[in-house]
Computed example of a mutant assay.
Amino acid sequence: MSTDAESLPDPSRRRRAPRIKARLHELYFGNSAKSVRFRLTVIAIDLVMVAFFIATPLLRETPAFLIIDYTMALILAADLAARAYASDRFGEWLKRPVTWIDIFVLVTLLFPFWLFNLAFLRVLRLWTLVHSEFFWRTVGRRYDETRWEDVTRAAATLVTFIFVMTGFVYTSFARTEGIDGYIDALYFTIATLTTTGFGDITLPGTWGRVISIVTMLTGITLFVRLAQALFRPYKVRFPCPTCGLQRHDVDAVHCKACGVLLNIPNDDEH
């Protein structure tokens, strides 16, 4: 009986797969200088992608729109596949809301005209990026667990809300009274969010009033949160070994909750 050599599995291929997985895992989760540079490149591409999402309504009619759109889709698909392969627990990775947001963004990129009315939700990728461990393990190595983390998170949430609401207003009320384009929708959102209320652009009907109310209330809340992050007394994150209280004054010696002696590391070297 003859054996067909071509039908047998390639041993070198079987050995190569674990090496590729280990390499990807090191790049995405490792602490080496090369891994950090790789993740910084990924984050820079993510920010360029978010900028494209924000500018999509202005670029949609340009000849290069589809080229840029499908290029972004290819990059995002490659990133998702690499993250999935590098993950130790694929099931847990797949269950994460961040993963589903990225998959949704990918689908809107693959069908840019059919799903254009949902494209404004792509900006949620900015929120998921800035609130991810991936971001703070890379960009925030020097600023993690500090005031800068709180300020950056609050600012990213505010910016994300502004452009999600702008996209929703543009999609829902385009070419109605006052909303002639994306800039008009952005102008209305910021004017309403800041409660300036010039009144030169208003949304028609009961639904328009509801959107205005939600924008004002949410905007005030997000501004207050950003102000608190900027001006409240700075506290370090150091879990109390007894009661678990997370935040303490920089010069705290005892936990305010239970009184146990603390040993908060000094970060002067940063």
Rank of each mutant, 00 (worst) to 15 (best):
W93I: 03
H270W: 13
S172Q: 14
F53I: 01
F38I: 03
F188L: 15
V105S: 15
I201W: 01
N266H: 13
L126E: 12
H131L: 13
T99H: 11
V105I: 15
S212V: 06
I220A: 06
F198N: 14
M165G: 05
I220F: 05
L24D: 01
L8K: 07
L222R: 03
P18G: 03
D88F: 05
E133T: 14
L121P: 08
I162W: 12
D144I: 13
A257F: 07
F29L: 05
L8C: 00
L66Q: 09
G140W: 11
V107K: 05
Q228Y: 00
L74D: 07
T195S: 10
V130G: 09
M72V: 09
V260W: 10
A154C: 07
R37Y: 01
G205M: 05
W207P: 00
R175C: 02
L126I: 11
F135W: 14
L47T: 03
A33W: 01
R209A: 07
I68P: 00
I103W: 12
I213K: 00
L8W: 04
L47N: 01
Y187E: 10
I67T: 14
T71W: 02
L217N: 01
T166M: 13
P112E: 08
P239F: 01
I190A: 07
S172G: 05
F161R: 09
S212T: 14
T152L: 15
T152Q: 07
P239N: 07
F53C: 08
I211S: 01
V151F: 04
L8A: 03
S87E: 08
F223N: 00
A229K: 07
R137V: 04
W93V: 02
V107A: 15
A78L: 15
R83G: 04
A119N: 14
R16I: 04
L129M: 15
D180E: 14
D4K: 08
D79P: 00
I43Y: 03
G140Y: 11
H131D: 13
W114L: 15
R37C: 01
A82Y: 06
A17R: 12
C243P: 13
A44V: 04
H248R: 06
R39S: 02
R147S: 03
L262D: 10
L80S: 03
S12T: 04
V260Y: 12
L230K: 01
A119C: 05
S7T: 15
P241W: 02
F168K: 12
V130Y: 13
L109H: 14
R39A: 02
A17W: 08
T146H: 06
T157W: 10
C255G: 12
F135N: 12
T157C: 10
I190S: 04
C240T: 11
L74Y: 04
I183K: 11
W114V: 14
M165D: 08
W148P: 00
G30R: 02
R147Y: 02
L59Y: 06
M165E: 14
D150I: 03
A119W: 07
L245E: 15
A33D: 09
T196L: 14
A119M: 12
E61C: 00
T171C: 08
T202F: 00
R23E: 08
Y70M: 11
M72E: 07
G199S: 04
M165I: 13
P112I: 09
